[in-house]
Structure formats: C-alpha cells, structure tokens
Simulated assay, not measured.
Amino acid sequence: MHTSSASSWSRLNWTRWITIAGLVLAFFAPPAFAQSDNTQLSGYVRDSAGAAIAGAKVVVKSEGTNLEREATTNEEGYYVVSNVSPGFYTVTAEQTGFKRFESTNKKVDPGISASLDATLEPGQVTETVSVVASTTAVETETSTVGKLVEAKQIEMSQLNGRNPLFLALLQPGVSGGALGGFSFGLTSGGFNINGSRSQDNLITFDGAVAVRTRSNGTSIGVADVDSTQEVQILTANYNAEYGRSAGGQIRIVTKSGTSDFHGTFYEFVRNSAFDANSWTRKRTNPGNQPCDDERFEKATHCRPDPFRFNQYGYNLNGPVI
C-alpha cells in the first residue's frame, strides 16, 4: 500500500510539473506571425550634394486616417518605418539648417516594401519643398511577379455578379474562370495560374486564409466589391511568408476607415425587362408563330428568357469616436 501510494504521488508530481512547464513555455514563447498586408517604407535622406543627413526626423502620415508614424535617420541617413498599412501617405523629412521636405500621394502597396528618398536643400525649416508622387517607380525591393488592381479599376469594372475575385483574370498568366460570367457565390474561381491547378492557389482576405481545405479550395466567403480597396495577384517569386500554395496568390484587401464618415446605399438590378430577345429564342417558332407577326409578339419564345437579380446593401465607415 505504501509503495503504491508513493508511486501515485510521484506520477501526480510529474504531471503537475509538466503542466506548469507547458504553461510557462506557452506564455513566454515568441509569437508566430502570419502573412500580413502591412509592409515597410524606407529610404535615405541626403543633402543636395548627396551626403547623408543623420538625425533627420521623418514623419509618415496616412492621407486617409491621419495616423502618423515617426522615424529618425541613422548615421548613413537611412530610415525605416515598419508595419505600414496599404494606402496613400504624405512623407516629410526635416533637419536643422535645411528646408522641410514633403512628398504627398505616396502609394504603398500591400505586402510589398516601398521606398522613398528625400533630398534636403539648405534653408530654414519653415520653408518647404513639396513633391507630388505621380509616377510609378521601378520596384527594386522585391522580385515578386504580380499585379495590383486598384480601387478606381475595381469601381469602373463591370463584374457580372460583383465578385472581385474574378479581377485576377486581368493578370497575365491567369486563365480559366470567366470574368464576364455570372458568379456571386462561394468559389475558388477555377483559375490556373502559370499552369497550376485551381486547388493549388490561395485566396486571402486581409492576409487571412480564405479557402477550405476540405472543399477543393473553395472560398469561405465572398468579398463585398464596395468594401474592396485592392486585389493583388501574385504569380511567381513571392516571399516565403505567402506559402501554403504551389500556384499563385489572390489577395483581397478591404478598405479601412478614414477620418471622415462616409456611407453608400446601393441596389444593382438585372431584369429581363431591360433585355432584348435572343436570336435563338426568336427562331424557335413553335406552331408556326413567327415573332414578326404582331399576334405572337407576347408569346413566350418572342420575349427574353425570364431573369431577375437584385443586389442591394450599404456601407458605412468612419473614425472610432
């Protein structure tokens, strides 16, 4: 009895210590970060002669939310601001004895490092040299092959079914699916990216995996086209953090709130009352009832195929008060 009790007590102590050790390891373990749409903005601050300016203050301000991030250049004039969300930014740089540098409308794409160099001219800090970013710079930070479909393109595109997933077909190397096809449900798009199978591609919503592994890669939801800011299609040479697939990546980025309140109410209608009859239906002519004859103009085969589709909803966004 005594030996059995001692053995039970020993097992209980071991179990207790293993449990405590597991909790300690879980608490102090370094976090594992998943893929993210955020990126970094970096660059060099130099004077007009090309010499590095150390200790310059660099401010990166979101033009949508007015959120500011600050950095200071090192002895080589280099600065880096990490965890920057996709969008447009105003970047300023200043140092005593130089005019203030300001660049507006700087575009930061999701998941792709951006760079912006600043050249400070001698003068007072109260003077400002403004630069408006209007051209697309050659990407030197990554070898990723892909395309970014931006908000204006999404707004102007006629999507049958209003599913932004099919904008992936705008990227060379993506085939399959149907950009003009009527599709608004759960689907992987049926894309072949550079020859890959549809099941080998990955769909993400704001960096979160959006496919079901037990349903042949079908999406777990349908993105609202009015809430979509950008659609990024990566076809080759993307970073290791975008793993999980042997094919391509379709990354849908939703809009963030801004410093002002905005709202949209909409209804999109498709109805056969707006359509003309098809040539195929007109030529059917059952029972010798030609559609050219006024007596049969209301016959079933002389009218468009019945179709009703109404999609309505709303979007509201703004600052958290």
Rank of each mutant, 00 (worst) to 15 (best):
A168M: 07
T15I: 15
K152L: 12
S256M: 07
F27T: 01
G173H: 08
L120F: 05
A276D: 08
N13V: 15
E68L: 08
A34V: 00
K282F: 03
S196H: 02
S245L: 03
P286Q: 09
T73L: 05
A246Q: 14
E75I: 09
T140E: 14
P30F: 01
P304W: 13
S134E: 15
I203G: 00
V60D: 04
G64V: 03
A276W: 15
V125K: 07
T119C: 10
F27D: 00
T228Q: 00
D117T: 13
G217Q: 02
L41G: 01
S175F: 07
N194H: 04
E127P: 06
K107L: 14
R281N: 14
E121K: 11
A29L: 04
V149F: 08
V84Y: 12
H262P: 00
V222A: 04
T284D: 10
T228Y: 00
G248N: 07
R16D: 02
T39C: 10
L148D: 01
Q199K: 14
A133R: 05
A49F: 13
F307R: 08
R11P: 05
S227K: 06
S183P: 00
V59Q: 10
Y238L: 07
P164V: 00
L159K: 00
G50P: 04
Y89N: 05
A51V: 12
S7H: 07
F261R: 13
D200Q: 14
E294H: 08
P31Q: 05
F274D: 12
T254P: 06
T254G: 09
T73N: 03
A273H: 10
E241M: 09
L159Q: 03
T204Q: 04
A114F: 02
T3E: 15
E297L: 11
D292W: 13
T213C: 06
S188H: 03
C291Q: 09
G221T: 03
Y79P: 10
Y314W: 14
H301T: 13
G257I: 04
S188K: 04
T235E: 12
A223P: 01
Q199R: 10
T235R: 01
D305L: 11
D292M: 11
R214E: 13
S256W: 02
V145F: 07
N277F: 02
T254A: 05
